[in-house]
Simulated scan of single mutants.
Amino acid sequence: MPAGDVLHSADVEVKWGVHPPGERRAAWATGETRTALLILIRGSFDIELRDRTVLLREPGDYVVWGPGEDHSWRSGDCETVVLTVRWPSIPGWRLPSAAN
């Protein structure tokens, strides 16, 4: 959000994610400098960390991971909705494309 917008914050960012059945992250997120909290709203979701996979199956199930923890994910067999909160906010951050 642009500076001055009531939704703008350098401290925290919130993402509402809607994922079709079986969707998988295109690549592992590495070099992450933020802390993240992901909450399952509907469906099922697997968060893959290098040392474990966390299975989210019931609405309200959540996982938290910190800076430096590589991660990936996969949605379940039906449309899945998750809410992710990350801090601090990094304006314009995106997973680098596979071409880079």
Rank of each mutant, 00 (worst) to 15 (best):
L83Q: 02
I39A: 03
G92C: 11
S44Q: 01
F45I: 00
G43R: 05
T53N: 04
T84C: 13
R42A: 09
I90V: 15
G66M: 04
T33L: 09
G76Y: 04
T33V: 13
G68D: 08
L40Y: 10
P96C: 06
P91S: 11
G68P: 10
D77V: 02
W93G: 04
Y62T: 04
L38D: 13
T53E: 05
F45Y: 05
E79V: 08
R86S: 15
L49K: 04
F45L: 03
W73Y: 04
L49R: 05
S89W: 13
V63K: 00
V54D: 01
S97M: 10
P59H: 01
T35W: 07
V85K: 15
L49F: 07
G43I: 09
V63S: 00
L95Y: 12
R74A: 06
W28G: 09
L37C: 05
T80Y: 00
G68Q: 13
P59Y: 00
E69V: 14
T33C: 07
D77Y: 06
V81L: 11
L95P: 10
G76Q: 07
L95F: 11
S89I: 02
L56V: 00
T84Y: 12
I41E: 13
I47Y: 01
R34N: 04
P59D: 03
P96G: 07
E48P: 02
L49I: 12
R74I: 02
L37V: 08
R50D: 14
L40V: 12
F45R: 00
T33E: 12
D70C: 10
W87N: 14
A36G: 10
R50H: 08
R52P: 03
S97E: 11
T80K: 00
D70I: 10
V63N: 01
T80G: 00
Y62V: 10
A36W: 10
P59A: 02
L38T: 13
W93R: 11
G68T: 06
D70G: 12
R50E: 15
T30M: 09
W73M: 09
L83S: 05
T80Q: 00
W87M: 15
V81R: 06
T35S: 14
L83G: 01
